[in-house]
Design a protein around this nucleic acid. Structure first.
Length: 337
DNA sequence: AGCCTTTGACCAGCG
DNA sequence: TCGCTGGTCAAAGGC
C-alpha cells in the first residue's frame, strides 16, 4: 500500500550518529528502526519483501515449496544432468516474455531444467517476487551446474527440486549456453502463471545469462513480476557487471553480507536504490567472482534508471537488456493481454 | 559531496 | 526454552 511505499523510501535514510547502537540494547531499535519489519512493513511493505521465503512457501500445503532449497537426500544433481529432460532442453529457446514462452520440459514436479556439457561456471538465479498486493508471488530459480565440486551442489538441485514444485503453471526457460540451467517458478498457492524468459548468452570463455523477467516487473501488471538478472562467467570482462550486481539495469545498494550455512560462499544482500522500490536481491559469489546464486525478492515498480549512470560496466548489460527489453515489451504487450 | 561497500552486531524465526 | 541461522541495520571507510 502507500504506507508501505512510504516506508520503503525511508530505507535509504540513515540513522543519525546519535542513534548509533550502543552496547546496551535499545528497545526502540528493535522494531522501530526496521523499515522492512516495522509495523507497517509487516502489514504493507513488509509483506512485499518481508514476505520472504516464508510467505512464498505455503508450509501448510502438501507441496513443501520451502524457501530454503533443500534436496532430498536421495536426490543427486547428477541425476538431473543425466535426465533426458535436460538433454531435450539443450536447444535454445526464444524468450517469450509473458506466457508466450515456449513450454519447457517440465518434470513431474513442474520444474524445468536444462544442462549442457559446456564447462561454464555454474550459476544460480532465483526470483522471488512477491506481490503481496495481489497476493501473488512467484519464485524463479535458475541454477547452472558448477558447484558440483562444492558442497551446495546437491543442495542446489534439491532446492530447485522443491521450488520447482509448481502447480503446473510455472514456465521456465533454460539455455544451452550454460552447463546447467535450472529455472523454477513457484507460486504461493497456484497462481504462478509467470513466464520466465531467461536468456543465456555465452560467448567464448564467459557465460552470460540474461533474464528478461525484469520487464515483467517493470510493467508491474504481470501476475508474477520477474526481474532480470545476469550472471556472467568466470573471469571475463562481464564479471565487472556481475560484480556490480546491477547488471539487470537497476541500481542496487549492498546492505549486508553473510556467510550462510551450507553455502560455500558468502551471501550478499542488495536493495534497489530506487526510493519507492523495495526490491531486494541476494546472491552468492564464489571466490572466483562468479555468481553462484541469485535470488530476487519483490518486483520493481519503476523503470530502469539510466544505464550510464555510474559504472560503464553496467552499460553493457543495460544495453543488452534494453534491447531485449524492448523486444520483450513488444511481445509482452501483445501477449500480456 | 554523494553513493556504495565493508563489517560487526542485533533481532526474529525456527527447530 | 535454548540455540542456531538468516536477514537487516548502521557506522566507517573508500571510490
Amino acid at each position: 500500500m502507500d504506507a508501505g511505499e512510504a516506508h520503503s523510501g525511508s530505507e535509504l535514510r540513515r540513522r543519525g550518529p546519535g542513534e548509533a547502537e550502543s552496547e546496551h540494547e535499545d528497545p526502540n531499535r528493535t522494531g522501530g528502526y526496521r523499515p522492512d519489519s516495522g509495523a507497517d512493513g509487516a502489514a504493507a511493505s513488509g509483506t512485499t519483501v518481508g514476505a520472504r521465503y516464508k510467505l512464498m512457501s505455503p508450509a501448510k500445503l502438501p507441496i513443501s515449496r520451502s524457501p530454503v532449497l533443500t534436496i532430498p537426500p536421495g536426490l543427486s544433481p547428477t541425476a538431473f544432468l543425466e535426465s533426458p529432460v535436460l538433454l531435450s532442453n539443450m536447444k535454445v529457446e526464444p524468450s517469450p516474455t509473458t506466457g508466450s514462452l515456449p513450454r519447457l520440459q517440465q518434470t513431474a514436479h513442474g520444474s524445468v531444467t536444462s544442462a549442457t556439457s559446456a564447462a561454464f561456471p555454474v550459476t544460480t538465479v532465483c526470483f522471488n517476487t512477491n506481490t503481496l498486493d495481489d497476493g501473488k508471488s512467484s519464485f524463479f530459480e535458475f541454477k547452472p551446474h558448477s558447484r558440483s565440486n562444492m558442497v551446495p551442489a546437491e543442495l542446489d538441485n534439491r532446492a530447485c527440486e522443491k521450488s520447482t514444485q509448481i502447480d503446473g503453471q510455472g514456465k521456465a526457460q533454460s539455455f544451452a549456453s550454460s552447463p546447467l540451467v535450472k529455472s523454477e517458478i513457484a507460486g504461493p498457492s497456484n497462481e504462478i502463471s509467470l513466464s520466465s524468459p531467461v536468456q543465456m548468452v555465452s560467448s567464448g570463455a564467459s557465460a552470460h545469462v540474461e533474464v528478461d523477467l525484469d520487464k515483467l516487473n517493470s510493467g508491474g501488471n504481470i501476475a508474477t513480476g520477474l526481474q532480470v538478472s545476469q550472471v556472467e562467467g568466470r573471469g571475463s570482462g562481464l564479471s565487472v557487471a556481475a560484480e556490480r550486481s546491477s547488471d539487470d539495469g537497476y541500481n542496487w545498494r549492498k546492505y549486508g553480507q553473510k556467510h550462510v550455512k551450507g553455502s560455500e560462499f558468502p551471501r550478499s544482500y542488495y536493495k534497489c536504490t530506487h526510493p519507492n522500490c523495495e526490491v531486494k536481491k541476494l546472491f552468492e559469489r564464489s571466490h572466483d567472482g562468479q555468481i553462484t546464486e541469485i535470488v530476487y525478492k519483490g518486483t520493481h515498480d519503476h523503470p530502469k534508471p539510466q544505464p550510464n549512470r555510474r559504472y560503464s560496466g553496467g552499460n553493457i548489460m543495460s544495453m543488452q537488456e534494453e534491447r531485449s527489453d524492448k523486444a520483450s515489451l513488444t511481445s509482452r504487450d501483445g501477449n500480456a493481454r
